[in-house]
Nucleic acid binder design. Sequence first.
DNA 1: TCCATTTTGTTCTCTCGTTCACAAACTCCT
DNA 2: AGGAGTTTGTGAACGAGAGAACAAAATGGA
Lengths: 221, 221
Amino acid sequence: MTTRSSAEAARDIPEATVARLPVYLRALTTLAEAGTSTCSSEDLASAAGVNSAKLRKDLSYLGSYGTRGVGYDVDYLRYQIAREIGVTQDWPVVIVGIGNLGHALANFSGFRSRGFRVVALLDADATRTGEEVAGVRVRPFDDLEDIVGEHGVAIGVIATPAVAAQDVADRMVGCGISSILNFAPTVLSVPAGVDVRKVDLSIELQILAYHEQRKAQGETA
Amino acid sequence: MTTRSSAEAARDIPEATVARLPVYLRALTTLAEAGTSTCSSEDLASAAGVNSAKLRKDLSYLGSYGTRGVGYDVDYLRYQIAREIGVTQDWPVVIVGIGNLGHALANFSGFRSRGFRVVALLDADATRTGEEVAGVRVRPFDDLEDIVGEHGVAIGVIATPAVAAQDVADRMVGCGISSILNFAPTVLSVPAGVDVRKVDLSIELQILAYHEQRKAQGETA
DNA sequence: TCCATTTTGTTCTCTCGTTCACAAACTCCT
DNA sequence: AGGAGTTTGTGAACGAGAGAACAAAATGGA
Ligand SMILES: NC(=O)c1ccc[n+]([C@@H]2O[C@H](COP(=O)([O-])OP(=O)(O)OC[C@H]3O[C@@H](n4cnc5c(N)ncnc54)[C@H](O)[C@@H]3O)[C@@H](O)[C@H]2O)c1
Ligand SMILES: NC(=O)c1ccc[n+]([C@@H]2O[C@H](COP(=O)([O-])OP(=O)(O)OC[C@H]3O[C@@H](n4cnc5c(N)ncnc54)[C@H](O)[C@@H]3O)[C@@H](O)[C@H]2O)c1
């Protein structure tokens, strides 16, 4: 299990690198829109907010897509990163919990433009179903299994209150979803093989508060 | 600069630990609400979704707040962590960009309950000002300096479109804000001493897509 | 053709983070 | 009082990530 088949490239991209590839992708898109066709690692690194050594090392995990003495072809590199991440294809996504946050997410244009397609908005509250948000009708949560089966959905977004999040996750996992983006402030437990990423506003603010407090302490000390 | 004054405790909490303290805090609150007064590192670790060795090591950076053979007093530990993070006091916060996302953020109850207080909602669009969201009136962006000065705001939240984010950040830094939470999909450049954290939906989804793609590859290989 | 210049890809080192494993410290029971 | 049983706090081993530094490879001009 440690060695891979010889046909497939020995791809084992570090997690820290995976998390930065989307940043590079966005920076490349910005450069392309500005009419730049070639860029050095220095250029791209500064657009992405990292140092150039790190950028080159990250890109080296994908292969040798640059030219020494010249730099990288913007469009070519962009395609290679997109392919590596998997956003050259479209990923169907369901959003569960169409309250304050769910509405904002449904209206978020960044889904479409980045290889994701919202195929359904689901809510358990019957008074919300039928409403149309960003061109998609809100449907009852119980339609989850049907929708996931029909569209082959692999990615689910949870924007329900914390108390409901584990139940929603269980239902998602039960019908084959294997990647979850969780906005509810709670720890989800899922079986091995299912990826969960969380976005947690309170945690981010508390981290800022910690550093802020230390800055203040330093001043008065 | 490497050694600290003898009076102050040698506090140098690793960044990875700082990011987990809010998770422990939330887990402790949940335990307290469930009527638990004492818990072991094993209990708390499972509630927080980490392993117990990591939890104990993290807590050891704060001091020795447990009792061997017994565990931790839930309320006492909760207070100690809250104090360390700095959320025993209230932090005033401004939100800039009251569109889809800004509305959701303004309505988010997690601010209040976690030591943060939204003192102002700002937007550059004159047609939005005057509107009341969650009991707070939306004011013109140009009031930023006045508000920050008046309330001593140190933390700012950016929920504007990406193109405006750098300008907003510059204005924030200019009037003394030193911690920024950025929801716009763009890399902010700020002077040293200012902390920026970003919340980026597209990046999270792309990371999920990468792993999802690898799972699919494994099946068909 | 050859040399100077540029910029990548990679090796090496150092720092940071995770996990293991166990002595120290506490409780409870006899 | 003493011993059995628990659970913390931490030293040490291990692994992952960051950054410096440089050889290899390309370009372009003489
Ligand atoms: N509003 C924000 O800016 C914000 C920010 C960060 C995190 N969050 C978190 O995101 C979540 C949603 O926040 P919100 O402000 O949109 O809350 P909300 O109450 O406005 O919306 C929650 C929605 O989920 C639905 N729901 C409840 N139980 C459900 C279930 N079992 N199945 C399906 N749908 C269900 C409700 O009907 C409601 O429409 C909360 O957990 C909140 O803590 C919100
Ligand atoms: N909607 C989402 O769920 C979501 C999710 C992730 C990220 N984002 C990002 O968050 C940001 C806001 O998203 P949104 O959907 O709320 O957009 P939106 O267009 O609905 O709202 C943006 C608001 O910012 C205001 N604004 C524009 N320029 C400004 C300036 N210079 N100063 C002050 N205010 C200004 C506008 O008047 C508007 O009210 C975007 O960058 C978006 O990419 C949104």
